[in-house]
Structures are given as structure tokens and as C-alpha cells.
């Protein structure tokens, strides 16, 4: 009987300590996991606020830049006056700017939307819209004579990089996710047939499971200008 008392007593002591440790650890664990979400951590909140403010001021600056560029081109047009040679030059400059992507442009064209497909099992990698898919579509459009192309509102210029950054795609240093709506200004029929040609880019995307919409001919598409810096060469 004495051993049983001893057993019960020592087991009680031990289970008391064990219970205490388990409870502390449990509390700790719950605390740690709640960290990963946006909890009441003041530092995290402050950083989020700073980030939002920076993004806001960034987009304000971009809008201002676009307005100023518009003013410059109006002044340029005014300064040419009635001189025919200057007007031709001005027109050429305008065309080049459109091709370079540094001035806003409007015109007829096509739109196409790429969506991630629904994965059935292990083929997640296949049905996602990858950076190279977007590149292929854009190259196809440019080859077919597109004069201006934009992806989700970001103008594609000669120095635009389209590449994968984790789950999203980075275009002109902007991170965007699916669906990707691609607008292209140019001859709508030529652009559309370039995309829908049998065995063409959209066919191969659909075969893989990517949800690519039918290209839509549009009467007027207006595109913003490219607002980033254009750099030549590998200097960063």
C-alpha cells in the first residue's frame, strides 16, 4: 500500500509539472503562429502604413509625370505652327514615341485574357499562366504588327522585362497576378488571326490547360504611357 501511495504522489507531482510545461508551450505556440498573420504587432502595422503611403505617393508622381508629358506634347504641337517640314517631323516624332511606348495612345486593336486553369491533381505547374506564356503572346502580337501592347494596364516597351517572381509576374517592376488582360493596338484582324491561328499560341496554351479567352476585336483601346525609366545597356 505504501508503494501505491508513493506512486500516486510522485505521479501527481510529475503530471503537475508536465501539465504546466505543456500549457506554457501551448500558449507560446498559439502566440507564435498568430505572429505570422497581420496581428496587432505595432511595428508590422507601421511598416504596412509606410508601404501604403509610399505606394500612394508613387502613383501620384506617376500621374503627375503623365500630365506633364501631355503638356510637353501640346507645347510641341503649338510650337510647330504652320511650318510643313516641322509638322512632318513632329508627326514622325509622335509615331516614334508611340512605338517606344512613352506617349499614351488610343486606337483599334484586340484584347485577350489569360487565366490560370483549374488543376486536376498534379498538373498545377502546367495550368498556371507563366511569364514565358505572356512573353510568347506578346511576341506573337508584336510580330503581327502591334504598335502598342499593355498588360493589366502596364505598357510594354522595348526594355520591359516580363519575368516570374514567385507566385506573380513582374512587368516593368510592377507585380501583377492572374488574370492577365493583354491589349494590343494595331490591325484588329491581323492581330486576332495571329493569335487564333491553328496550332498557334492560344491553341497550345489551351491544350496545356491555361484558360485563354477568345481574342476580342475592339474599336478603341486607350493605353497609358510607360512611366518608368528607360535605360540603355546593362547599367542599373
Amino acid at each position: 500500500m505504501r508503494t501505491r501511495t508513493k506512486l500516486a504522489l510522485s505521479l501527481s507531482v510529475v503530471s503537475l509539472v508536465l501539465g504546466f510545461m505543456v500549457a506554457v508551450q501551448y500558449k507560446q505556440q498559439a502566440h507564435t503562429t498568430s505572429f505570422s498573420f497581420f496581428s496587432g504587432d505595432p511595428q508590422q502595422k507601421q511598416l504596412m502604413a509606410e508601404l501604403t503611403a509610399l505606394k500612394q505617393s508613387n502613383s501620384n508622381a506617376e500621374a503627375e509625370l503623365a500630365a506633364l508629358t501631355g503638356q510637353i506634347s501640346t507645347y510641341e504641337q503649338q510650337s510647330t505652327g504652320g511650318n510643313a517640314a516641322l509638322q512632318t517631323l513632329q508627326q514622325k516624332l509622335q509615331d516614334e514615341r508611340i512605338l517606344a511606348g512613352v506617349s499614351p495612345v488610343a486606337g483599334p486593336g484586340v484584347s485577350v485574357t489569360l487565366m490560370d486553369g483549374v488543376a486536376t491533381g498534379n498538373n498545377v505547374e502546367q495550368v498556371l499562366t507563366h511569364d514565358w506564356d505572356i512573353r510568347s503572346v506578346i511576341n506573337e502580337l508584336f510580330t503581327a504588327g502591334a504598335e502598342a501592347v499593355s498588360i493589366n494596364g502596364y505598357r510594354v516597351v522595348a526594355t520591359s522585362g516580363i519575368f516570374c517572381t514567385g507566385p506573380v509576374v513582374e512587368i516593368n517592376d510592377h507585380r501583377i497576378g492572374a488574370p492577365f488582360t493583354i491589349y494590343a493596338i494595331g490591325d484588329p484582324q491581323a492581330l486576332k488571326s495571329a493569335l487564333t491561328i491553328q496550332g498557334g499560341i492560344l491553341d497550345s496554351l489551351r491544350q496545356r490547360g491555361v484558360n485563354a479567352s477568345e481574342p476580342q476585336e475592339m474599336q478603341t483601346i486607350s493605353m497609358p504611357a510607360y512611366t518608368g525609366t528607360i535605360m540603355a545597356g546593362p547599367s542599373q
Binding site: L9, L11, S15, G19, V22, A23
Partner: peptide, 27 residues
């Protein structure tokens, strides 16, 4: 026989009520 179970319950209660936290690196 129920004494150890009682001990466990009391221990858990103390652990939850007492404001004891261990630095994450020691957890």
C-alpha cells in the same frame, strides 16, 4: 488513482493562468 489526473489539470490551469512566457528561442 485520480490524484495524478487532478495534478495534470491543476498544472495546465497554472500554466494558462500564470503569465509565464519563454523566449521564442528557448521554446
Amino acid at each position: 488513482i485520480w490524484l495524478p489526473v487532478l495534478g495534470l489539470v491543476v498544472g495546465v490551469a497554472i500554466g494558462f493562468v500564470a503569465n509565464v512566457t519563454i523566449p521564442i528561442m528557448y521554446s
